[in-house]
Design a protein around this nucleic acid. Sequence first.
DNA 1: AGCAATTTTTATCTTTCAGAAAATTTTTGC
DNA 2: GCAAAAATTTTCTGAAAGATAAAAATTGCT
Lengths: 174, 174
Amino acid sequence: MREKFNRADRRLAKLLSREGREGVNDLAAQLDLSAPTVRSRLKTLIERNLLKIVGVLNVAERPELIIAIIGIHANGHGRLDEIAKRMAELPFVTSVSIVTGRYDLIAEVLFEGDMEDLYHVTSTLLPGLAEPGVIQGSETFVVMRSHNKWVSLPKGVWDEDFGDAPAAAGSSRE
Amino acid sequence: MREKFNRADRRLAKLLSREGREGVNDLAAQLDLSAPTVRSRLKTLIERNLLKIVGVLNVAERPELIIAIIGIHANGHGRLDEIAKRMAELPFVTSVSIVTGRYDLIAEVLFEGDMEDLYHVTSTLLPGLAEPGVIQGSETFVVMRSHNKWVSLPKGVWDEDFGDAPAAAGSSRE
DNA sequence: AGCAATTTTTATCTTTCAGAAAATTTTTGC
DNA sequence: GCAAAAATTTTCTGAAAGATAAAAATTGCT
């Protein structure tokens, strides 16, 4: 079976990390490979869920996008990964990591201009992920400014409801 | 002048956040627009640095990629943004945010299987960004496991030196 | 070293896409 | 309500992209 990530795959990933819409012919030329080869490598990388090509938004240029990083204390009892997995499926949550250090989990969340959504996540959604006492507390770091921070949109943001309006009816609670 | 981000732009961004290589014709069909319109909107979004389309790697599937989140205490004296900007240009640093809460800055860094690089960043690069005493301390959270975490490669990772070898000579310090 | 399996290349074909220009519709400002 | 500006659509043509099959090269294994 093919090695998961050889030298060519890395160079391909590096090229695509700069320009994801670059044509297969250009990529092949830069990698000294043929176009069908690049196509097939790219296909398998994507199929194996190692790589994906997506549009991402520049946080610094979109002030109405609120990002927060949440450090969470959780008494996992060996089920931390399960909790993390469920957390990653919540609306507004972009990613969840199990980490060393002061926190057990660090999650990143994204909203559109609605602090109520943030409150809802930290006060209701997070504690509701496990039996009482498991999620012991959290600290929220709201991003005020950022550099080189690009985000992809999580579930819950710009999903079906779009308002050109100043984003008052955009919230998806009820 | 055109509005920065209208309804169509949002829907376009949402579609691209799922599949960045989708053809302009398919996108146009889903948005009820014509292909040239989608092309031109996409072009301006990218030109204005609001959106980009890139390949990202699945952290959970690449154990040799080490990610860490660093919380930093900095006595900025109004120059925090300048420090953050310089930090974002360091090798291995993927993004830097100025945040509310316990830390002043939160940075994310990425290496390939080399804890020495992490030590180098926290012990030398970070404190060297400003006069002594400005960077007062930091806490590092090494990501052990993650869900739905995709990263784009920063400067310093897979840049020119590639080793198929077990990633021992891949470090770019000295 | 030699053989088998996989991977890569080459070549060909069909389909689709990208970009430009002009016309039409929609929006905006007065 | 009217005029100016912007956005969108239509149409067109050359250029890519994608699929497929067969040959060549590489790799791995005994």
